[in-house]
Design a protein around this nucleic acid. Structure first.
Ligand SMILES: [Mn+2]
Ligand SMILES: [Mn+2]
Ligand SMILES: [Zn+2]
Ligand SMILES: [Zn+2]
Lengths: 184, 184
DNA sequence: TATCCGATGATAATTATTATCATCTGATAG
DNA sequence: CTATCAGATGATAATAATTATCATCGGATA
């Protein structure tokens, strides 16, 4: 298993392709092509570091100083909804803690944010030799499986039943996420 | 590669072990053993769902109604610092977006929060057959490699140089994270 | 039991994100 | 090309999670 860091040349070519298709993709999704949207996707595709809304906003304002930060937030979410971008931080809305110190991974319900421990025999062994990212000193890794839990699939699944402390206990601000896994 | 969801029996036994050692571990770390700390680690170990601070606080207050939410936040971070817990949401502090729609994974600097794309040949193929968590309908997956980037290893590495849009652009509230990878 | 330093509780401050609403504008039809 | 209008935007307020502040408290040690 070989690990490669995606380099800038490939990224730049990819960004050009994507920009060429962008207007058509907006129309296909039934969305007007606004200069804000164009500038935001362009800044996102130019970025190498998975930027935050504020960072995108700063970049966009170099050419369009009037753009509102709220618009950047809204637009980034819109781009995720139509599949033109994804949020790296699936679970960023509030900190979630884990008492289980054994090596393990997680399956996350993208609707109710339930998180369960899973063990994947062989994975860590297989990865152990491969994790050598140039420019980084690796400390550890974790696999997050995005999924829909049975409760959410059956009912509306607003929140888990009486799971005691384990219950999520609230409806997250953003329970409408699109899968973002690395599979297709 | 076989995936198993960690069941309640094993968790309960594990929780009992951990509670038995907890006071000694606090002392080893030079921390007083307070009733709040004990109650918080107990609630965390009893939880099945990687709870948030508020959820832990609600549980703890059933026995200790005076406990402050701020204390729960502080204590959970302390527990992470001494290695008695971990934060599942490494990057929860602000939403990070990605324009790269190709299947790929991420390496994250735990100090400056830089995130770079990595491709791991063979991983998705190997996982494809294994991802069948009972009780969940899988949608996708992603591997996050926690690491320290060279800049942070060499200098203080407060933030990346002039990476334009890509730069994180601020010092995160919580740049003092412990590795939480699934390796040992 | 007295001492002390870190822990805690109460509360304010900060920060990211979302909601609201008046105004603007891209898309469409004439 | 222009009128129309639904949806997008900008300005701003509101919300929510987390952290900071600081007076008080209480484990640990002798
Ligand atoms: Mn876990
Ligand atoms: Mn990426
Ligand atoms: Zn669910
Ligand atoms: Zn770094």
């Amino acid at each position: 298993m070989r690990l490669t860091v995606v380099n800038d040349n490939r990224r730049a070519a990819y960004a050009r392709e994507r920009m060429a298709e962008f207007a058509a993709r907006c129309r296909a999704a039934g969305l007007p092509v606004t200069p804000q949207r164009t500038a935001i996707i362009e800044a996102l595709l130019d970025a190498t570091d998975h930027p935050r809304a504020e960072s995108i906003c700063a970049e966009v304002r170099r050419r369009h100083p009037h753009v509102s930060l709220a618009t950047v937030h809204r637009t980034l979410e819109t781009l995720c909804r139509i599949g033109e971008a994804r949020k790296v931080t699936t679970l960023h809305d509030s900190a979630r803690y884990d008492g289980n110190l054994r090596p393990h991974h997680h399956v996350v319900c993208v609707r109710c944010r339930r998180i369960r421990d899973v063990e994947i025999a062989g994975l860590d062994t297989a990865l152990g030799g491969a994790i050598r990212a140039p420019g980084f000193k690796p400390l550890g890794w974790s696999l997050e499986i995005q999924a829909v839990c049975d409760d959410c699939a059956n009912f509306g699944g607003r929140e888990g039943r009486s799971s005691g402390t384990g219950g999520v206990g609230r409806t997250p601000r953003n329970s409408n996420q699109t899968p973002q896994g690395a599979n297709e």
